[in-house]
Amino acid sequence: MMDQVAAAIEHKAYARIGLLGNPSDVYYGNTISLSLANFWATVKLEPSDQLVIRPHPAHDLVQFDSIDHLVNRLQSEGYYGGVRLLMAICKIFYKYCKAENIALHGGNFTLSYDTNIPRQTGLSGSSAIVCAALNCMLDFYKVRHLVKVEERPNLILEAEKELGIVAGLQDRVVQVYGGLVFMDFNKSHMDKLGHGIYTQMDISLLPPLYLIYAENPSDSGKVHSTVRQRWLDEDEFIRSTMNEVANIAVEGRQALLAKDHAKLASLMNRNFDLRRSMFGDDALGALNIKMVEVPRQVGAASKFTGSGGAVVAFCPDGPEQATRLQDACEKAGFIVQPVQVVPSLLTEADLKISSS
Protein backbone atom coordinates (compact mmCIF):
# COMPACT_ATOMS: atom_id res chain seq x y z
CA MET A 1 0.00 0.00 0.00
CA MET A 2 1.24 3.48 -0.80
CA ASP A 3 1.99 5.84 2.02
CA GLN A 4 -1.00 8.15 1.90
CA VAL A 5 0.60 11.10 3.64
CA ALA A 6 -1.07 13.61 1.34
CA ALA A 7 -4.42 14.89 2.47
CA ALA A 8 -7.53 14.83 0.34
CA ILE A 9 -8.04 17.91 -1.84
CA GLU A 10 -11.49 19.31 -2.54
CA HIS A 11 -12.51 22.17 -4.81
CA LYS A 12 -15.81 23.81 -5.61
CA ALA A 13 -16.73 25.48 -8.91
CA TYR A 14 -19.90 27.50 -9.33
CA ALA A 15 -22.63 27.83 -11.91
CA ARG A 16 -22.59 31.02 -13.95
CA ILE A 17 -24.89 33.61 -15.49
CA GLY A 18 -24.08 35.20 -18.81
CA LEU A 19 -25.33 38.70 -18.08
CA LEU A 20 -24.65 40.49 -21.36
CA GLY A 21 -23.10 39.82 -24.75
CA ASN A 22 -23.72 36.09 -25.07
CA PRO A 23 -23.43 34.25 -27.42
CA SER A 24 -20.82 36.55 -29.00
CA ASP A 25 -17.98 34.89 -27.07
CA VAL A 26 -17.97 32.21 -29.76
CA TYR A 27 -17.76 34.92 -32.45
CA TYR A 28 -14.86 37.10 -31.23
CA GLY A 29 -17.20 39.37 -29.29
CA ASN A 30 -17.51 40.63 -25.71
CA THR A 31 -19.43 39.32 -22.71
CA ILE A 32 -20.08 40.05 -19.05
CA SER A 33 -20.64 37.06 -16.78
CA LEU A 34 -21.02 36.46 -13.09
CA SER A 35 -20.29 33.52 -10.84
CA LEU A 36 -23.51 32.17 -9.29
CA ALA A 37 -23.28 31.09 -5.65
CA ASN A 38 -26.73 29.44 -5.72
CA PHE A 39 -25.37 26.26 -7.34
CA TRP A 40 -22.02 24.51 -7.55
CA ALA A 41 -20.11 21.33 -8.28
CA THR A 42 -17.48 19.83 -5.99
CA VAL A 43 -14.66 17.48 -6.89
CA LYS A 44 -12.63 15.56 -4.33
CA LEU A 45 -9.17 14.13 -5.01
CA GLU A 46 -7.85 11.50 -2.60
CA PRO A 47 -4.42 9.85 -2.94
CA SER A 48 -4.79 6.16 -3.82
CA ASP A 49 -2.81 3.18 -5.10
CA GLN A 50 -4.45 3.25 -8.50
CA LEU A 51 -5.96 6.09 -10.48
CA VAL A 52 -9.71 5.77 -10.00
CA ILE A 53 -12.58 7.81 -11.43
CA ARG A 54 -15.47 7.13 -9.07
CA PRO A 55 -18.99 7.18 -10.57
CA HIS A 56 -21.56 9.32 -8.79
CA PRO A 57 -24.26 7.18 -7.12
CA ALA A 58 -27.07 9.24 -8.68
CA HIS A 59 -25.66 10.99 -11.76
CA ASP A 60 -23.82 7.94 -13.14
CA LEU A 61 -26.55 5.43 -12.40
CA VAL A 62 -26.12 1.98 -13.99
CA GLN A 63 -28.57 -0.01 -11.85
CA PHE A 64 -32.32 0.47 -12.18
CA ASP A 65 -35.52 -0.85 -10.62
CA SER A 66 -37.03 -1.65 -14.00
CA ILE A 67 -36.86 -0.81 -17.69
CA ASP A 68 -39.46 1.91 -17.02
CA HIS A 69 -37.10 3.41 -14.47
CA LEU A 70 -34.19 3.26 -16.94
CA VAL A 71 -36.13 4.91 -19.78
CA ASN A 72 -37.61 7.64 -17.56
CA ARG A 73 -34.19 8.32 -16.16
CA LEU A 74 -32.62 8.68 -19.61
CA GLN A 75 -35.41 10.97 -20.78
CA SER A 76 -34.96 13.31 -17.82
CA GLU A 77 -31.21 13.09 -17.23
CA GLY A 78 -29.71 11.98 -20.54
CA TYR A 79 -27.03 9.36 -21.08
CA TYR A 80 -24.07 11.11 -19.54
CA GLY A 81 -22.94 11.75 -16.01
CA GLY A 82 -19.68 13.24 -14.81
CA VAL A 83 -17.25 10.35 -15.21
CA ARG A 84 -16.41 11.21 -18.82
CA LEU A 85 -15.79 14.85 -17.81
CA LEU A 86 -13.27 13.82 -15.16
CA MET A 87 -11.52 11.47 -17.58
CA ALA A 88 -11.33 14.16 -20.25
CA ILE A 89 -9.75 16.80 -18.01
CA CYS A 90 -7.20 14.26 -16.77
CA LYS A 91 -6.17 13.63 -20.37
CA ILE A 92 -6.10 17.31 -21.39
CA PHE A 93 -4.20 18.33 -18.24
CA TYR A 94 -1.61 15.59 -18.78
CA LYS A 95 -1.11 16.50 -22.45
CA TYR A 96 -0.81 20.21 -21.61
CA CYS A 97 1.82 19.58 -18.94
CA LYS A 98 3.78 17.33 -21.27
CA ALA A 99 3.70 19.94 -24.05
CA GLU A 100 4.77 22.69 -21.64
CA ASN A 101 7.52 20.54 -20.04
CA ILE A 102 5.79 20.70 -16.67
CA ALA A 103 6.97 17.72 -14.63
CA LEU A 104 4.29 15.77 -12.78
CA HIS A 105 5.33 13.75 -9.74
CA GLY A 106 4.35 10.12 -9.34
CA GLY A 107 1.42 8.94 -7.29
CA ASN A 108 -2.17 8.16 -8.08
CA PHE A 109 -5.49 9.46 -6.89
CA THR A 110 -9.21 8.84 -6.79
CA LEU A 111 -11.50 11.51 -8.21
CA SER A 112 -15.13 11.81 -7.13
CA TYR A 113 -17.67 14.55 -7.68
CA ASP A 114 -21.01 15.93 -6.61
CA THR A 115 -23.18 18.69 -8.04
CA ASN A 116 -26.42 20.49 -7.26
CA ILE A 117 -26.51 22.47 -10.52
CA PRO A 118 -29.86 21.74 -12.20
CA ARG A 119 -29.42 19.82 -15.43
CA GLN A 120 -30.27 21.29 -18.83
CA THR A 121 -30.66 24.79 -17.44
CA GLY A 122 -27.81 26.49 -19.27
CA LEU A 123 -25.95 27.19 -16.01
CA SER A 124 -22.71 25.46 -17.05
CA GLY A 125 -22.96 22.36 -14.91
CA SER A 126 -20.55 20.30 -17.00
CA SER A 127 -17.78 22.88 -17.04
CA ALA A 128 -18.16 23.39 -13.28
CA ILE A 129 -17.22 19.73 -12.71
CA VAL A 130 -14.26 20.05 -15.08
CA CYS A 131 -13.10 23.32 -13.47
CA ALA A 132 -13.21 21.85 -9.96
CA ALA A 133 -11.28 18.78 -11.11
CA LEU A 134 -8.61 20.92 -12.78
CA ASN A 135 -8.13 22.85 -9.54
CA CYS A 136 -7.69 19.59 -7.65
CA MET A 137 -4.98 18.42 -10.03
CA LEU A 138 -3.18 21.77 -9.99
CA ASP A 139 -2.87 21.38 -6.22
CA PHE A 140 -2.17 17.64 -6.16
CA TYR A 141 0.75 18.02 -8.56
CA LYS A 142 1.73 21.39 -7.03
CA VAL A 143 1.86 23.11 -10.42
CA ARG A 144 -0.69 25.89 -9.93
CA HIS A 145 2.10 28.49 -10.25
CA LEU A 146 3.06 27.05 -13.64
CA VAL A 147 -0.35 27.25 -15.33
CA LYS A 148 -1.40 30.82 -16.02
CA VAL A 149 -4.88 31.85 -14.95
CA GLU A 150 -5.81 32.91 -18.49
CA GLU A 151 -4.93 29.48 -19.83
CA ARG A 152 -7.02 27.47 -17.38
CA PRO A 153 -10.37 28.20 -19.10
CA ASN A 154 -8.84 26.91 -22.35
CA LEU A 155 -7.98 23.60 -20.69
CA ILE A 156 -11.53 23.25 -19.37
CA LEU A 157 -12.96 24.00 -22.82
CA GLU A 158 -10.56 21.55 -24.49
CA ALA A 159 -11.73 18.79 -22.16
CA GLU A 160 -15.34 19.47 -23.13
CA LYS A 161 -14.49 19.67 -26.83
CA GLU A 162 -12.86 16.26 -26.41
CA LEU A 163 -16.37 14.98 -25.64
CA GLY A 164 -18.08 16.81 -28.49
CA ILE A 165 -19.54 19.53 -26.26
CA VAL A 166 -19.90 22.73 -28.30
CA ALA A 167 -19.23 25.84 -26.23
CA GLY A 168 -17.25 29.05 -25.88
CA LEU A 169 -14.77 30.34 -23.34
CA GLN A 170 -17.13 32.67 -21.46
CA ASP A 171 -18.45 30.14 -18.94
CA ARG A 172 -15.05 28.67 -18.16
CA VAL A 173 -13.48 32.09 -17.66
CA VAL A 174 -15.94 33.19 -14.99
CA GLN A 175 -15.77 29.78 -13.30
CA VAL A 176 -12.00 30.16 -12.99
CA TYR A 177 -12.04 33.84 -12.00
CA GLY A 178 -15.24 34.07 -9.95
CA GLY A 179 -17.01 37.36 -9.32
CA LEU A 180 -18.09 39.59 -12.21
CA VAL A 181 -15.93 39.54 -15.33
CA PHE A 182 -15.87 41.57 -18.55
CA MET A 183 -14.37 39.53 -21.38
CA ASP A 184 -12.98 40.76 -24.67
CA PHE A 185 -12.59 37.99 -27.23
CA ASN A 186 -11.34 40.23 -30.04
CA LYS A 187 -9.84 38.09 -32.80
CA SER A 188 -6.47 39.82 -32.59
CA HIS A 189 -6.22 38.94 -28.88
CA MET A 190 -7.33 35.38 -29.48
CA ASP A 191 -4.88 34.87 -32.35
CA LYS A 192 -1.95 36.51 -30.56
CA LEU A 193 -2.48 35.31 -26.98
CA GLY A 194 -4.62 32.20 -27.37
CA HIS A 195 -7.17 33.71 -25.01
CA GLY A 196 -9.19 36.87 -24.46
CA ILE A 197 -8.59 39.87 -22.21
CA TYR A 198 -10.42 39.31 -18.93
CA THR A 199 -11.17 42.19 -16.55
CA GLN A 200 -12.71 41.66 -13.13
CA MET A 201 -15.36 44.14 -12.03
CA ASP A 202 -16.65 45.02 -8.57
CA ILE A 203 -19.64 42.79 -7.78
CA SER A 204 -21.21 45.64 -5.79
CA LEU A 205 -21.98 47.28 -9.15
CA LEU A 206 -24.69 44.68 -9.74
CA PRO A 207 -28.30 45.46 -8.82
CA PRO A 208 -30.49 42.66 -7.37
CA LEU A 209 -31.01 39.99 -10.02
CA TYR A 210 -33.26 36.92 -10.17
CA LEU A 211 -32.67 33.46 -11.57
CA ILE A 212 -35.63 31.73 -13.22
CA TYR A 213 -35.67 28.14 -14.41
CA ALA A 214 -38.01 25.23 -15.03
CA GLU A 215 -37.89 22.13 -12.87
CA ASN A 216 -38.26 19.88 -15.92
CA PRO A 217 -36.74 21.75 -18.88
CA SER A 218 -37.82 19.24 -21.51
CA ASP A 219 -38.33 21.72 -24.35
CA SER A 220 -34.92 23.18 -25.08
CA GLY A 221 -35.48 23.76 -28.77
CA LYS A 222 -35.85 20.90 -31.18
CA VAL A 223 -34.43 22.50 -34.33
CA HIS A 224 -30.69 22.67 -34.94
CA SER A 225 -29.51 26.26 -35.28
CA THR A 226 -27.87 27.39 -38.52
CA VAL A 227 -26.33 30.52 -36.97
CA ARG A 228 -22.79 29.15 -36.72
CA GLN A 229 -22.67 28.08 -40.34
CA ARG A 230 -24.23 31.33 -41.52
CA TRP A 231 -21.62 33.28 -39.56
CA LEU A 232 -18.84 31.22 -41.15
CA ASP A 233 -20.43 31.89 -44.55
CA GLU A 234 -20.20 35.62 -43.73
CA ASP A 235 -23.96 36.11 -43.75
CA GLU A 236 -24.36 39.89 -43.47
CA PHE A 237 -27.35 39.79 -41.12
CA ILE A 238 -25.73 37.32 -38.72
CA ARG A 239 -22.38 39.14 -38.74
CA SER A 240 -23.88 42.59 -38.09
CA THR A 241 -26.34 41.32 -35.47
CA MET A 242 -23.63 39.39 -33.62
CA ASN A 243 -21.47 42.52 -33.60
CA GLU A 244 -24.40 44.38 -32.05
CA VAL A 245 -24.71 41.67 -29.39
CA ALA A 246 -20.99 42.01 -28.63
CA ASN A 247 -21.35 45.77 -28.28
CA ILE A 248 -24.13 45.28 -25.73
CA ALA A 249 -21.51 44.01 -23.28
CA VAL A 250 -19.36 47.10 -23.88
CA GLU A 251 -22.35 49.37 -23.27
CA GLY A 252 -23.36 47.24 -20.30
CA ARG A 253 -19.98 47.67 -18.68
CA GLN A 254 -20.41 51.44 -18.86
CA ALA A 255 -23.98 51.19 -17.57
CA LEU A 256 -22.85 49.13 -14.57
CA LEU A 257 -20.00 51.52 -13.78
CA ALA A 258 -22.42 54.46 -13.99
CA LYS A 259 -25.11 52.53 -12.06
CA ASP A 260 -27.48 53.31 -14.94
CA HIS A 261 -29.99 50.58 -14.17
CA ALA A 262 -32.52 51.73 -16.77
CA LYS A 263 -29.86 51.28 -19.44
CA LEU A 264 -28.91 47.88 -18.03
CA ALA A 265 -32.52 46.72 -18.24
CA SER A 266 -32.79 47.92 -21.83
CA LEU A 267 -29.57 46.13 -22.79
CA MET A 268 -30.66 42.85 -21.19
CA ASN A 269 -33.89 42.88 -23.19
CA ARG A 270 -32.11 43.87 -26.37
CA ASN A 271 -29.60 41.04 -25.92
CA PHE A 272 -32.32 38.41 -25.96
CA ASP A 273 -34.28 40.06 -28.76
CA LEU A 274 -31.21 40.02 -31.00
CA ARG A 275 -30.55 36.38 -30.17
CA ARG A 276 -34.13 35.54 -31.02
CA SER A 277 -33.88 37.34 -34.37
CA MET A 278 -30.84 35.23 -35.30
CA PHE A 279 -31.79 31.82 -33.95
CA GLY A 280 -35.57 31.80 -34.43
CA ASP A 281 -38.28 30.51 -32.12
CA ASP A 282 -38.08 26.87 -33.20
CA ALA A 283 -34.42 26.65 -32.20
CA LEU A 284 -34.95 28.49 -28.91
CA GLY A 285 -37.95 26.41 -27.82
CA ALA A 286 -41.39 27.49 -26.60
CA LEU A 287 -40.69 26.91 -22.90
CA ASN A 288 -37.51 28.98 -23.03
CA ILE A 289 -39.30 31.84 -24.76
CA LYS A 290 -42.11 31.73 -22.20
CA MET A 291 -39.49 31.91 -19.43
CA VAL A 292 -38.30 35.22 -20.91
CA GLU A 293 -41.76 36.59 -21.64
CA VAL A 294 -43.31 36.00 -18.20
CA PRO A 295 -40.92 38.43 -16.40
CA ARG A 296 -41.46 41.00 -19.14
CA GLN A 297 -45.20 40.91 -18.48
CA VAL A 298 -44.51 42.57 -15.11
CA GLY A 299 -42.03 45.04 -16.61
CA ALA A 300 -38.86 43.18 -15.64
CA ALA A 301 -35.89 42.85 -17.99
CA SER A 302 -35.03 39.27 -18.92
CA LYS A 303 -32.70 37.17 -21.05
CA PHE A 304 -31.13 33.73 -21.16
CA THR A 305 -28.34 32.97 -18.70
CA GLY A 306 -26.72 30.92 -21.44
CA SER A 307 -28.22 29.25 -24.49
CA GLY A 308 -31.55 28.42 -22.84
CA GLY A 309 -32.95 26.55 -19.87
CA ALA A 310 -32.69 29.42 -17.40
CA VAL A 311 -33.28 33.16 -17.41
CA VAL A 312 -31.80 36.09 -15.51
CA ALA A 313 -34.23 38.90 -14.68
CA PHE A 314 -33.85 42.41 -13.30
CA CYS A 315 -36.63 44.48 -11.73
CA PRO A 316 -35.71 48.14 -12.29
CA ASP A 317 -38.77 49.32 -10.34
CA GLY A 318 -37.67 47.64 -7.13
CA PRO A 319 -39.06 45.23 -4.51
CA GLU A 320 -42.75 45.56 -5.37
CA GLN A 321 -42.01 44.61 -8.96
CA ALA A 322 -39.86 41.73 -7.72
CA THR A 323 -42.85 40.42 -5.75
CA ARG A 324 -44.97 40.53 -8.90
CA LEU A 325 -42.18 38.75 -10.77
CA GLN A 326 -42.14 35.99 -8.17
CA ASP A 327 -45.91 35.57 -8.35
CA ALA A 328 -46.02 35.54 -12.16
CA CYS A 329 -43.20 33.00 -12.45
CA GLU A 330 -44.64 30.68 -9.82
CA LYS A 331 -48.04 30.85 -11.52
CA ALA A 332 -46.33 29.83 -14.78
CA GLY A 333 -44.63 26.91 -13.02
CA PHE A 334 -41.12 28.37 -12.90
CA ILE A 335 -38.70 28.43 -9.98
CA VAL A 336 -37.38 31.87 -8.95
CA GLN A 337 -34.35 32.56 -6.76
CA PRO A 338 -32.52 35.78 -5.89
CA VAL A 339 -29.10 35.68 -7.52
CA GLN A 340 -26.19 35.29 -5.10
CA VAL A 341 -22.84 36.32 -6.56
CA VAL A 342 -19.55 34.61 -5.75
CA PRO A 343 -16.71 37.07 -5.04
CA SER A 344 -13.45 36.76 -6.98
CA LEU A 345 -11.84 33.34 -6.61
CA LEU A 346 -8.33 34.43 -7.59
CA THR A 347 -5.59 34.34 -4.99
CA GLU A 348 -2.57 36.63 -4.76
CA ALA A 349 -0.51 33.82 -6.27
CA ASP A 350 -2.92 33.56 -9.21
CA LEU A 351 -2.71 37.29 -9.85
CA LYS A 352 1.08 37.20 -9.81
CA ILE A 353 1.25 34.65 -12.62
CA SER A 354 -1.43 36.37 -14.69
CA SER A 355 0.05 37.08 -18.11
CA SER A 356 -1.94 40.21 -18.87
Rank of each mutant, 00 (worst) to 15 (best):
A6E: 13
A7N: 14
I9F: 02
I9C: 03
A15W: 00
N22R: 01
P23L: 02
V26G: 00
Y27R: 07
I32C: 02
N38P: 10
N38Y: 04
T42F: 01
L45P: 05
V52G: 09
P55V: 06
P57E: 11
Q63S: 14
S66G: 07
I67L: 14
I67H: 09
H69G: 07
N72D: 15
G81N: 03
G82R: 00
M87A: 15
F93I: 07
K95D: 15
Y96R: 12
A99W: 02
I102H: 05
I102L: 06
N108K: 12
Y113N: 10
Q120N: 13
T121E: 04
S127L: 01
V130E: 02
F140D: 01
F140L: 03
E150S: 00
A159C: 10
L169V: 07
Q170S: 14
Y177Q: 12
F185C: 12
N186H: 14
K187I: 10
L193W: 12
H195T: 14
G196I: 02
G196E: 03
S204I: 06
L211Y: 05
I212V: 14
P217C: 07
S220C: 15
H224T: 12
T226M: 07
W231N: 13
D233E: 15
D235N: 14
M242D: 09
E244V: 01
A246Q: 02
I248A: 08
A255P: 10
A255Q: 11
L256R: 05
L257W: 00
K263S: 10
R275G: 15
S277K: 13
S302F: 00
S307N: 06
A310D: 04
V311H: 01
V312G: 05
V312H: 05
G318W: 05
E320Y: 04
Q321V: 11
A322L: 10
Q326P: 11
E330H: 11
F334E: 01
V336A: 04
V341F: 09
L346H: 05
T347D: 08
E348Q: 14
D350W: 05
L351K: 15
